[in-house]
Design a protein around this nucleic acid. Structure first.
Lengths: 341, 341
DNA sequence: GTGAAAGCGCTAACAC
DNA sequence: GTGTTAGCGCTTTCAC
């Protein structure tokens, strides 16, 4: 009974069962003021005609879309996907649809991507973009003042918008605490690109941790990578050259830690006997490296869920103030720092 | 000059510069039949008012959205993200927007997710869902007959829809060829869940490869995992018990291979001297395991791009026939099979 | 409880 | 070249 090629509309349903389109609309929106007999009749018609309502038309008429936009950058980076999963899950729970706009590269002008979301009448936007260089500033510049509520995830604290994030500095400090408690004192650091806010926060954490324990953290003990395993290996080579007597390494992410472990092993250094090493992210492979890697686990999916809830609070009450939601990261200790037995 | 809270519409722009909405529409769509002076005037007005056209309204009027939908399942699995990146990139190149619907779990009823896409008037849909159990059949059952063009990625060959995929069986056969050429003969296999089409294809490849070289592939040499590293470790334990003299292992993905390597090492077996091992996927960590892991690299991003192009060919010419686009996977040989020097 | 009318923001088809 | 008239499919507002 389908009319191929033509969309089944609310009018078709109305005509099919002899009511007005308004009544069909009421049934679809579960409004109470419809007689039971009518409701049944309409529901049958909807089923018979395989009617799929148009979200576009609904949004246009209703002035809200029940849809939130997500600006994503660097989907290839660890974690982005998990955050997105949290966003999608929680949105489904709350009856929201998620629209995704991807920035192929972090440093690209976000104007078009954000427009794509606004053009589709999203009720609000979650910015899941690493705070690199002026990326977040550029986003803020594009946002029409206050037209749509916005929440940042993993970035952009105290920029005038709400944000959900973990305290990278404190988490890294805890890694240093852990190593210091094990008696390590000559601790080197492999950083991510310092243009990344996350990287510089973690670096801060390493330094304040070292300070706390009265340990040296001169620039000679720092090497900057680009998050890749290869860059971690390169950084390790440089550090071994500059600090031959180091007894521990903290890496700003797990991939760089894996690269560094490779180099340590090549140089005949035993992990953790000679050099202890810890990463950040707790990627799925971390427990399966040789030896299993101590790391910091961020509640990535939970951050996504929290971002949705925070955004919704803004959508429902535009007068609500800026909120900063800090979540705790967790140190996961494995053999790369404590050894096996 | 912004009117806060109210959307700037085409009417505002038209009134602002004293032309009809139609003329504004023409300018926005880069139609040639507009006088240069008028065009300039309108463009200035658009800039002045910070006008963002409504994609919703445009779609409703134009009867096409220039938007394609992607049904995604198992974003946590390796590769899904890369395929999505390819889809997003190529879509941007072709001036298309991508709408994503996520299935939280593979086995969930896809009806709602597909509806969400159709409700938003997508011009076509890419199904990026692993072929598990009856998942693909269920999708086909939901599709309104031929209303929207559909392309499957990494699944669903010869189901009446176009599809883009790699030949998993042949790729796995090449892994066996490689090991056989190295003189390995007692080759065990760690499979993914056999309810997954991809897993059973790879298993087929292992068996036909073993057959080709006259090697035994009895069920005792097969262990089934769930793609996780832990399950690979468990499988390896079982295999060592059943086939104590094995000299090589093929795993259906890299994570299970990592788990298996862990167990081999725990048992004092040297890789690859005693046991060679190969995985599948070539995850970023594969070159950095101990030893670096031989694996099979799929052109995941390219599959995404190809899927977009194939879908577009259907959108542009509804009469075009079903297409099957096979892409080649590539064996990446590393030390886990050939040793270091 | 139900229906009629107007409008959401845009484009297609036709005038001029 | 440009404007006018109808919609696209739905929701709102206000009748009855």
């Amino acid at each position: 009974m389908l009319v191929p090629g033509r969309r089944v509309t609310i009018k078709d349903v109305a005509a099919y069962c002899g009511v007005s389109t308004q009544t069909v609309s009421r049934v679809m929106n579960h409004r109470p003021d419809v007689a039971l007999a009518t409701r049944l009749k309409v529901e049958q018609a909807i089923a018979d005609l395989v009617y799929t309502p148009s979200a576009l038309a609904r949004t246009l008429g209703a002035r809200h879309s029940d849809t939130i936009g997500v600006l994503l950058a660097g989907m290839a980076y660890v974690g982005t996907t998990q955050t997105l999963t949290g966003i999608v899950d929680e949105s489904a729970n709350l009856g929201l649809t998620v629209l995704i706009a991807e920035l192929p590269e972090v440093e690209i002008d976000p104007r078009r991507a954000i427009s794509a979301l606004i053009e589709r009448h999203v009720d609000g936007i979650i910015m899941s973009v690493p705070d690199v260089g002026r990326a977040v500033d550029r986003i803020k510049a594009v946002l029409r003042d206050g037209a749509e509520p916005v929440v940042f995830v993993k970035a952009g604290v105290s920029n005038g918008y709400s944000s959900v994030l973990v305290d990278n500095a404190t988490a890294t400090e805890e890694v240093v605490d852990h190593l210091a408690s094990l008696g390590r004192s000559r601790i080197a650091y492999i950083s991510g690109p310092l243009s990344w806010h996350e990287a510089s926060d973690r670096w801060d954490g390493w330094r304040s941790g070292m300070d706390k324990h009265g340990l040296a953290h001169d620039p000679g003990r720092l090497a900057e990578g680009d998050w890749s395993a290869q860059s971690g290996a390169d950084a390790m080579v440089a550090l071994l050259d500059r600090v031959p007597d180091l007894d521990a390494v903290v890496a700003a992410n797990d991939r760089m830690a894996l690269g560094a472990m490779h180099v340590l092993r090549k140089n005949g250094l035993r992990i953790p006997d000679d050099v202890a090493i810890a990463g950040f992210d707790d990627i799925p492979e971390a427990p399966w490296s040789t030896p299993p890697l101590t790391s910091v686990r961020q509640p990535l999916a939970e951050m996504g869920r929290e971002a949705v809830r925070t955004l919704l609070s803004h959508v429902e009450d535009p007068a609500v103030g800026v909120q900063t939601v800090p979540l705790r990261a967790e140190l996961v200790v494995r053999e790369s720092t404590i050894g096996s037995s």
